[in-house]
Nucleic acid binder design. Structure first.
Lengths: 332, 332
DNA sequence: AGGAGGACTGTAACCGGATACAATAATGAC
DNA sequence: GTCATTATTGTATCCGGTTACAGTCCTCCT
């Protein structure tokens, strides 16, 4: 079933059917007749043909590290909904922190001729290897927005969270509430977020003239609960008063370990997280953490992306850093 | 940049380039030369053209109610990964329980010419209105798999959980541990899962000759934490000993409410859930619930789908109901 | 009535690949 | 060296829409 079949049944040319489908100028009576037939035949045009001819598709790629990290479902939802309202389609890709996967996903998206990509990943120092690929997109007028990594000189919008300031806040809070020996756990040190969050932690300590002890700073592994448990135990054995965690999952892992080791929270160990995932307020020791304005950031990123695609937004690429808010609960 | 450009630069015809891209028979030397140029020019073929000619795409639709429900991220991951390994692409759609949204998503997927769809939704009694649309897919050889609703006579595989048996187990457990007055909370009564889960609850009571009290059976609203809080309060005021919840989110809501009302769990109120979402084991009163073999079910659904698409699987549509496992924790 | 001008419609050329079929080159047997 | 086979390559068409361009048909004036 093609527009030619519809055209024949309606006694018009294919061009007229196409115009009916695209709100071209068609006499009302003709339009009605064609629409009736389209309806009756359950005709739906084939996007592969539509987009072959049109200069751009209405597909947007969204690349995240891992949908199982509870931060991302909300971002996916926000973006999914905006795209739905604007009649765009969402193509989702998980990289699991692997350059190779990211490369595959980008390749796939290029084949699919996406109109834009929201990149929420950051694979560490070696992800500059992806720059040539990304530049390729830009060359072809595919719009990019970054929300999880530095732009490395690429002319793209960058919408993110002020990780430095956030972690500084958390550390300052722990210092203020009397913690002396404060450990730090994050994921891989080469990730942009790790770097910024670690810097915030260090800055807060320096400001109060607290000695920086590399022995209780752990910046390897993933941002997962499992790593939280593992490193949590290590730090507890090193007699820390508090642990600043790079994200909530790590913090929850630390709290789990503390439970197993019969360490009371927050009396014997204070723990802070980062993200304020839905879990954070529901666990046994509700988590003191930094709430990311994730919804707003996703919305802004997505709307700027569409604005650029549709030519409504033409200003030079900007950096927008949003301020996380410290949410004090019971874990610290 | 098209295969024609590549062909010209390589001094071959477009057909040869196409063969290089599709592992056709090409002399090794020629292949090398063409590949070098493809590499140098960063050429990537345009799927809109590829799929215009080919009988089917390598895109699979996955339709879920809401990615924010913690059951779905895992399913998305499992399916995403299988598809990635098999070189298929994932198109995700959230319906939010709305027939209208589901219709839009199905329409979009038809335009995109998906090769198959995994349907994890169930919009209640009126979703039979979607049958004509779904039959349309089948007519066009698009393969469907259902994981969340009855097949309504459609010739499709149905992979799901035995909701009836699961809820019967939970209710029986509550009876065995001495609870007399057991309330029931679920989402909308027209949903297939609700129907089955309610039936399991009723069967368990009947088997023990416990009177069914419609006054403490609530089957409206959504499967959300908020509804759990709302209906939990209602049931607590009606003096129930226990509440069987249609899913974990509802159960967590009930537990939250109980906390606010100073009702001790499980001494004064036992609560069970359904799903065993990641949250279930981490909350203050770890949840007794039914673990769904979600990973396996998603995998089976996805693999059968691909098998049928690729013609490897040709047997008649089957129903596979997997058995949920009762996980006893502290809430009951 | 004769035209001007706009509304509507049709014709045909793309878009960028895949592939049937035809043509040519290479290989091997005798 | 010749010819049958097979391997390799090229030509041309098609996939299903969109759209530039060229009509055709009205409507409304003068």
């Amino acid at each position: 079933m093609t527009i030619y079949d519809i055209a024949k049944k309606a006694g018009v040319s294919s061009a007229t059917v196409s115009r009916v489908l695209n709100n071209g100028t068609v006499k009302t009576a003709t339009k009605k007749r064609v629409l009736r037939i389209i309806e009756k035949e359950n005709f739906v045009p084939d996007n592969t043909a539509v987009y072959l001819k049109k200069p751009r598709t209405r597909k947007i790629g969204f690349i995240i590290p891992d949908i199982l990290n509870p931060v991302y479902p909300l971002a996916v939802k926000v973006i999914h909904d905006i795209l739905r309202d604007r009649k765009y389609q969402l193509i989702l890709g998980n990289t699991y922190g692997e350059i190779k996967e990211e490369r595959n996903i980008l390749d796939m998206m290029q084949r699919e001729k996406v109109a834009g990509i929201i990149l929420a990943t950051s694979e560490g120092e070696d992800d500059s290897a992806l720059n040539p690929l990304l530049e390729n997109f830009i060359k072809r007028n595919v719009v990019l927005v970054f929300t999880g990594k530095q732009k490395n000189g690429l002319p793209v919008d960058f919408i993110s969270i002020d990780n430095f300031s956030g972690m500084k806040k958390a550390t300052e809070y722990l210092l203020k509430t009397g913690n002396k020996r404060i450990g730090f756990i994050s994921g891989d040190k080469n990730l942009w977020v790790t770097e910024k969050r670690l810097a915030g932690y260090i800055q807060a300590l320096k400001n109060k003239n607290v000695e920086i002890d590399p022995d209780i700073i752990i910046t390897e592994g993933q941002y997962t609960m499992e790593c939280g448990e593992k490193w949590g135990e290590v730090l507890i054995r090193k007699k820390v008063d508090a642990v600043v965690c790079g994200n909530d999952l790590l913090a929850i892992g630390v709290i789990k370990t503390a439970g197993k080791m019969n360490i009371r929270i927050p009396e014997e160990l204070s723990v802070t997280g980062f993200d304020d995932i839905p879990l954070a307020s529901l666990i046994k020791h509700p988590l003191t953490t930094l709430r990311q304005p994730f919804e707003d950031a996703s919305r802004i990123a997505c709307e700027r992306l569409i604005g650029r695609i549709e030519g409504r937004l033409t200003e030079k690429p900007v950096d927008i850093l949003m301020e996380p808010e410290l949410i004090v609960r019971e874990s610290a």
